[in-house]
Simulated scan of single mutants.
Amino acid sequence: MTGPDPRVLVVGEALIDLIPAPDGSLTPSPGGAPANVAAGLSRLGTRAVFAGTLSSDALGGLLRRRMTDAGVDLTHCGESDRPTALAVASPQPHGTRYDFHHQDTATFRLTPRTDGLDGFSTVYVGGLAAVVDPAAGAVLATARAAARETVLAVDPNVREDRSLDRAAVLRRLRELCELAHLVKASDEDMSLLWPGEAPEAACRRLAAGGRLAVLTLGARGSVAFLPDGRPLRIPAVPVEVVDTIGAGDAFMAALLGGLARFGRSPADLAPAAVLELLHRAATAAAAVCAQAGADLSGVRQSEVRQSAVRQSAV
């Protein structure tokens, strides 16, 4: 499935998070779930190729510098004169709420990527681009092609915003989950996507279709469901939380990086390998929670890998 130098194609948005400071001001910070995943992958030692669109404005320049500093390959990234999308963050006790300013921005002018996907070990799609037009159509076309040619990884990362059609959002994200070989979702995501069905039951059902389904539970850790229905659980890594912005994206980046190194389809992994992936991902998520912002710049890949091996041995 993969060569000796695996690459992950990340499709979606890079935008600016406006994060409230204690004095009430807003601090711009590079964000967007796919961009966070791409930067995290690269920081952790996996070659990441970002297929989004960056604005030629100053904020687009900030996003470009963030990814080039992390080592992300931007040769598949487009450029537009339209402005950069903004996400105003409102940290809450159990997560972060966002208000998005995305209409007619460069951020969501994506090009479908349907050729040459077998040259990537994994294609990741998710974030707001999966549900915001005109990007959503490009994301879906890319996901359908990736599902046929390589490993498709999806993080539904459900966002609710006044500008979005809720029914269309859920329909699009459910389709992506059903195309995927690897689904990573929070318990809140699953409750929104399949209301009336317990999150663990929904993940077990997804896994039964030949997928690896990973459910994150915040402070309660995470659980992966194998295609045969077996759950594999790990606790969260203890950490003093500064904020949770980007924690799920760091978890996904570490999960994808570990998967690329195994070089096998997620459904074919042995339970011990899945547990190692979960520990690796939990370590990266904890590292992001312990700092302000979504970047893994202060985390060395060796620390994540060694911590994962130690925890898997416990």
Rank of each mutant, 00 (worst) to 15 (best):
T107D: 01
A219I: 00
S121P: 14
L152A: 13
G119F: 02
H279P: 10
L62V: 15
A51I: 07
L278T: 03
F262M: 11
L232S: 09
V169F: 02
L206C: 08
Y98M: 02
L63R: 00
R109V: 14
D133S: 14
G229Q: 07
L278W: 07
S297I: 12
G32T: 12
G119K: 04
F120A: 06
G137E: 13
V309I: 15
V10H: 08
A89C: 12
V37C: 01
A87M: 00
I234F: 01
L277V: 08
S121C: 08
A253R: 05
D99P: 03
A308H: 02
T150S: 06
V88E: 13
P34Q: 02
G95K: 04
E160G: 02
G60I: 06
L296H: 04
W194E: 15
S25E: 14
P195W: 11
P20W: 13
N36S: 12
L277Y: 00
A273K: 03
A180Y: 08
P4E: 15
D243M: 01
D155I: 10
F262P: 03
E175M: 10
I234W: 02
S80E: 02
R230Y: 11
G293A: 13
P238F: 06
G248S: 05
S191M: 09
V314D: 11
V131G: 06
R7N: 09
S191P: 05
L74F: 11
R113N: 02
A287Y: 07
V169M: 01
L192Q: 10
V11S: 05
R233E: 07
R66C: 06
T75S: 14
G210I: 12
S265G: 08
L176D: 04
G31E: 04
R66M: 11
P156W: 07
V11L: 13
L193H: 06
A281V: 12
L173C: 04
G61E: 11
A224I: 14
R305F: 11
R148D: 15
A70R: 05
A130G: 08
P91S: 09
L9I: 14
P112L: 06
E197A: 13
D161I: 01
G40P: 00
A260T: 12
G119C: 10
T75Y: 03
S55P: 01
P20L: 15
A294Y: 05
T244K: 02
R148E: 15
A292L: 10
A273H: 06
A224R: 11
E188A: 03
S80Y: 03
V72C: 07
G116C: 14
P4K: 15
A287D: 14
P30V: 14
P227E: 11
T142V: 09
G257N: 12
G78L: 06
A198T: 15
V37N: 01
A198P: 10
P20K: 07
A201E: 15
A130I: 08
A308M: 08
V72T: 13
V88N: 03
L173S: 08
V8F: 01
G221E: 11
I234T: 10
A143C: 10
S297G: 05
P28W: 02
A260S: 14
G229L: 13
N157Q: 05
P199A: 04
Q301I: 15
A14V: 14
A129F: 01
G52R: 00
P30I: 08
A247S: 08
T107R: 00
A254N: 05
D99K: 07
L152Y: 10
V299Y: 00
A247C: 09
A33R: 01
